[in-house]
Design a protein around this nucleic acid. Structure first.
Lengths: 208, 208
DNA sequence: GACCCTCGACCGACAACCTGTCGGTAACAG
DNA sequence: CTGTTACCGACAGGTTGTCGGTCGAGGGTC
């Protein structure tokens, strides 16, 4: 009844299980007891490895975001691809990574998981923003678009999409399309790109 | 020991107290018992008037947002003022309303109150966005700026400011200024206004 | 090999909360 | 006198985090 494992292994076992449950039932609705039951360990064990339930959440998010950032970075470094296109690729690489992504981001936006969403958003911002900003700067250098504040542009776009498009479910199809059109239009404006010039590039990101 | 009041009076008494405590300690860290103690009523009384703790939060936010929307609306209808200027006035009217606003918005951004922030943001969006969009449309008609998607522009700006500038504390002064500069620049881009043309108008909103 | 000891991983009872329910009570209106 | 509205407080059920104690693998020592 007492199975001893190396700390790192136990830790990721706990994270795996927590992730699964958080995705399925949401953060608030998952009790530490649920996690214990699923793994078959005792209360004390969990609190030996993590100092609180929130600590688990943070670790889980860091893991996810770290993976996403890594994928984005890999794409970012491939200088063969035109910068603007690479920017889009980096974003879609992150979406793809997210194996459980679909359900996770869906959960995220349920009001219950506000904390989870907020923490994920913050982590994503601080990890990924610099990477995307780097690519955008290259795009500006290439002369395909222009802005004096690439960092602020990425910020604005990330915050907006994180808030608006994660819960693509729920809303009506035509509503969604209108939002996407507006978003593309605004993005073109922010980058001083000709109207319609980014449409084909951006649209695939919203395919489903 | 048993003081009977009319339902509406009790309700707003509860909301007042809850608001005070939520602002001071945050939503998660305020227990219903705290509220009871502060007012001097029994558990059952609170749950006679509200069906849950979250219900109290929602009612409190609706009250706040309702007041803010009303102020904004009042300003919006004053056609004497140029639309673009009116837009700014409407925004600053909302900030002013918020008597406890400073502390409230500060609390909002502490990770603990993610739920509160999220709900407030959503309510604000749906109430205030149409009002501001209306003003922006007038501005476009006046010819002082242009956009095909006024609604999306307001959306983007509200989401971004709600996320980024509420927690103006915490970050360094120069960091803050850079963010503001970027924001103004981006706003000008979104509205197709000449660079620098909105600066004097927008800047006062960030005064402190 | 036999002994001991340390220390990391683990256990589970328990304290200290928390929210929401429910049967019952007081007062007022009609 | 009766129905309704506002109120009470004990209590059920659930939550997180703590803490003293256990177990055993591995390292020294003889």
């Amino acid at each position: 009844m007492r199975i001893v494992k190396e700390a790192e292994i136990r830790k990721s076992e706990i994270l795996d299980t927590a992730e699964k449950l958080f995705v399925r039932k949401g953060y608030e609705n998952t009790s530490t007891t649920d996690i214990l039951g699923e793994i078959g360990i005792a209360r004390g064990t969990l609190y030996y490895h993590f100092k609180s339930k929130e600590d688990i959440l943070i670790a889980m998010i860091d893991r996810q975001v770290g993976q996403m950032a890594a994928k984005a970075k890999a794409v970012a470094e491939n200088r063969e691809i035109p910068a603007l296109q690479r920017l889009i690729l980096a974003v879609s690489a992150m979406k793809a990574d997210n194996g459980l992504g679909k359900e996770l981001t869906e959960q995220m936006h349920k009001p219950h998981n506000a904390l989870m969403h907020q923490k994920a958003q913050a982590a994503l911002l601080s990890e990924v923003n610099p990477i995307l900003t780097g690519i955008l700067k290259e795009a500006v250098d290439e002369g395909v678009c222009s802005t004096d504040y690439p960092d602020a542009v990425i910020d604005m776009i990330m915050v907006y999409t994180g808030h608006t498009f994660d819960d693509l479910s729920e809303i009506a199809e035509d509503e969604r399309e209108k939002k996407i059109d507006g978003f593309i239009y605004n993005t073109e404006r922010l980058l001083c790109a000709a109207e319609g010039s980014l449409r084909e590039l951006i649209l695939p990101l919203f395919a489903r």
